[in-house]
Design a binder for these strands. Structure first.
Lengths: 343, 343
DNA sequence: GATGCTTGAGTTACCCGTAACGTTTCGCTA
DNA sequence: TAGCGAAACGTTACGGGTAACTCAAGCATC
């Protein structure tokens, strides 16, 4: 039995075993508490574990067993968006309490970055993957199918997922908001967002929104700030542009709450009263929105719960429990006070 | 050469090699693009890589080389706090662009959770660790010292770090705010926070704050909502309690911006005008604070930059470049309009 | 006293890549 | 055409841990 200290001064099981005067295998059994050894042997081994500061090498364990690790890869577009931070929090808390670790990937909303990240993470033999969004590059899809590990697609509910899916129906959430605003008596409605990528949850919301508004006899003027992230300032300037171009806008729906705050701020800075002169509606129901004096009209999604649900589905699959492959986490419209009351 | 498919239907290098009619080693060289093979051989091997969908197993690579992985463990208290989400974003973006992955740990502000997480993550042979905070349990400290890998402690600047440190001096930031408020003419000042743990950045801020206020002839009435997280509602109720107990409070300093918003909301809901009747000051300068109509008086910390700096120090150490062991990222006081102007 | 069962502990093979080294092939020079 | 060196490729030996198997000793049963 070789038991020389390895280059990077890490203590290996062999060294513990030799110090305790037993074989590697016996030491392994003791460390894992697997049974099949005497009390005396266990004490001798554990004494050396403490004395040498032995830490197991999980890479070797995974390697030896030809099984997967306790890693779960989690891809998130970005953390500047509070919404995704909450989702990640829900995921990691739940995974962590069951002995799994999240390997993070910020994919910047691009499929190419996601593909690169998937390739890298798969090479670490993760137990599973949790991905934001239902659209992936062809290469990514191939790799995911071949990987043979559980995959949960979150955010955008997918009735025919790669494997499992949890989220909400974005089209419906946009539709509901459209119907609500029509019900409030608005007909000349604006939309301010950033993306025009078709493979995108925000686009689905916009489509649902337009369908409801147009079906209700209204019309939608769109203002897309391309090449921008969906935060406060694009909301501010997007509103300025929209109002400069389109006359008679009565109400504006934004891609998300952050942009809506930008728009709200622009309107009040121009002396427009909200909702008397113009209505403002956001999406996502940021936590801070609920404590500001004027409640923003928005759509609430249980972000933390969404993350937890994703982790639960992953864990269920990993422990071979039966689980549903598709879970709708639901949303609800928050009336707020930034659009006028339905008559 | 054995080349049977392994149990979990993962394609191994041996299988590629056999399919291409070369040895494992040659296949390895081709896959790594290391040179030492003919064009013809390379084409044959790569054809099989594509055909079989081979993905390298990085566990084996790490294992073979007896070196560390490309993982970097990142411990963060929680992501509900936008501040830490930004820090994490800065870290992961920078690490990711250099081929490293973040393994996340949400340690809930407790040393015990951090210790458990450190033990687990170390067993995966990470390349390094980035930890929030300068205080760790004795066991954790031992493990970190023995691990022989770079460790960056962030958030709370530490002049004698375990290894490297980047952040700000929280005492000073509290002190500056205290001096500023005194300069604005306030003397009867309140503080609302959650923690009374001494091993804590917020406590350091409070200490600095008290020193400045008391040194300037003022006094501080403290209201600590224990067992609560530092978010909106504790700010709201903490303010209610503080004002009920202490008479004549002219201005309140909060543990962070989220709590300050809660307090601001409580005050306005009670008909108190800010800053005419009462001053409000937060800490952290949340992004949303900068777009709301009334700018919150706060302390700005470059969160994203902090995360990037931590990642840079880690990467420098990993590539054996000379790097400083301590970096002060700095902060600046944001006057805002929620405290009355200095006379 | 022979047999079988338990219990404790050692042996061996293997997981998948890579470093180090050994071997073959081939073109070029003398 | 022998001799030589470099390029191309194969072989072997790890690395840390575990599954599966083997083996020996202790004990009870008939």
């Amino acid at each position: 039995m070789k038991a020389k200290p390895s280059k990077n001064n890490k203590v290996s099981l062999s060294e513990v075993a030799r110090a305790a005067g037993v074989s590697k295998m016996t030491a392994s059994r003791v460390v894992r508490g697997e049974g099949g050894y005497s009390e005396d042997t266990r004490d001798r081994v554990m004494a050396q574990v403490d004395a040498l500061g032995y830490l197991p090498n999980r890479l070797a364990t995974v390697f030896a067993g030809d099984k997967s690790s306790t890693f779960v890869g989690v891809s998130i577009p970005d953390l500047g968006n509070e919404v995704f931070a909450q989702v990640l929090e829900g995921i990691d808390r739940k995974l962590g309490s069951f002995g799994h670790q999240s390997v993070l990937g910020l994919t910047q909303h691009t499929l190419q970055e996601e593909e690169n990240w998937i390739r890298t993470v798969l090479s670490w033999q993760p137990a599973g993957l949790i991905l934001t969004g239902r659209y992936h590059s062809p290469n990514a899809t191939d790799m995911l199918k071949n990987a043979g590990i559980p995959v949960v697609e979150i955010w955008d509910l997918n009735s025919s997922p790669l494997d499992m899916s949890v989220g909400i129906n974005h089209f419906d959430s946009g539709f509901d908001m459209g119907r609500y605003l029509i019900g409030c008596g608005y007909t000349n409605i604006g939309y301010v967002g950033t993306s025009h990528d078709t493979a995108n949850a925000a686009t689905m919301r916009l489509e649902g929104f337009c369908k409801a508004v147009e079906g209700g006899g209204g019309q939608v003027a769109k203002q897309l700030c391309l090449h921008d992230t969906a935060t406060y300032y694009p909301g501010f300037y997007g509103t300025e542009q929209l109002l400069a171009v389109s006359a008679g806008i009565e109400c504006i729906f934004y891609q998300n709450d952050a942009m809506a705050f930008g728009g709200l701020n622009f309107c009040t800075s121009k002396g427009l009263r909200v909702p008397a002169d113009i209505g403002i509606a956001g999406w996502g129901n940021l936590p801070i929105a609920s404590v500001l004096p004027q409640r923003l009209t928005s759509v609430n999604v249980p972000h933390l719960k969404l993350g937890q649900a994703a982790a639960e589905m992953m864990l269920a699959r990993l422990s071979d429990e039966p689980e549903e492959s598709c879970r709708d986490i639901g949303f609800n419209l928050v009336p707020g006070s930034t659009v006028r009351r339905a008559s």
